[in-house]
Design a protein around this nucleic acid. Structure first.
Lengths: 155, 155
DNA sequence: TACATATGGTACGACTTTCGTAGTATATGA
DNA sequence: TCATATACTACGAAAGTCGTACCATATGTA
């Protein structure tokens, strides 16, 4: 069947692009981190803190798959740079709540400005239904990534 | 304009999914690396070696944005695990050519099997023209990532 | 050819990061 | 009230990173 072969070829192309995109975004994060004197794992954590709101170091450790003591070091660096703040949890005074310092965010976004501009240009080339297909695909893929990761972890 | 707002919302959703996908794939790589007693940077390099064929440590250092001496350590780990082989370049006997050991690849792919299965299920939900849109989008995004990274590097 | 200079890779050592363990503070349950 | 569990971090050992130096080889010049 000719159609099946075309589909296989497309799936392969998607997989390769996904791999390369992942590789490029990792490298971009690495470079951004270097500019800010942060490690890429620091930026990963900062992203999680931004997306998942104020959370405790333990939760962050679980989400990032890192040892709690490692998180301490990462938070030390992020705090020293003024990217996050550590606050006591009023409900549980053993716990610490990590929150992002929003005033500092523009300094980070500035470094992603080039990427954002390019992405906006790319969006402009698609009509609304195509954008919906893309959004849907990415959302499903992210979910697939989450499941695959969970399967691998011995938790 | 209603349409413009819908487009903005879709662009935002795509950006968020992309961010989360990147985060998830990084985490997946990290977990896969842990299973193989490799660092995630090792896997990044292995991926580059796989995609860009046999290359020298210097080229790899440039592609990965790492110090040449760091590459030595990474290659040592990869070689010790049997993932790559170092060979003298017949054309330039100072140089070393790093090539991937294909026989060892299944051990790596096995760990990505869950992700691959999920992705295949996702592909199955789209028709051919939709897959083309997705492939095109990802390819452009990867290229955008490459440009954005190059802009940030002081090379 | 002979020599100076440039380049590729790695060994070495200083510095940093990571993570297992232990310790302190607080919470929970009997 | 006391025992136990949990949250976080300090500390130290082990590993990773990277600037420098070094050796081998290549390239350019006389």
């Amino acid at each position: 069947m000719e159609a099946a072969r075309r589909r296989r070829r497309l799936a392969l192309a998607i997989g390769n692009s996904l791999r390369e995109l992942n590789s490029q975004l990792s490298l971009l994060n690495y470079r951004v981190g270097a500019q800010l004197e942060l490690r890429d794992v620091d930026l990963d954590c900062l992203d999680l803190i931004d997306r998942l709101g104020p959370l405790t170091p333990s939760e962050l450790a679980r989400m990032a798959g890192l040892h709690p003591a490692t998180i301490t070091g990462i938070l030390d660096r992020l705090e020293r740079g003024g990217w996050i703040a550590r606050e006591r949890d009023p409900a549980d005074r053993r716990a610490v709540l990590v929150r992002i310092v929003r005033e500092r965010l523009p300094d980070l976004l500035r470094l992603y400005a080039g990427m954002n501009r390019s992405m906006n240009e790319i969006y402009a080339g698609y009509d609304e239904s195509e954008l919906e297909v893309i959004a849907d695909f990415l959302s499903r893929s992210a979910k697939a990534g989450r499941s695959a990761t969970d399967e691998l972890s011995p938790s």
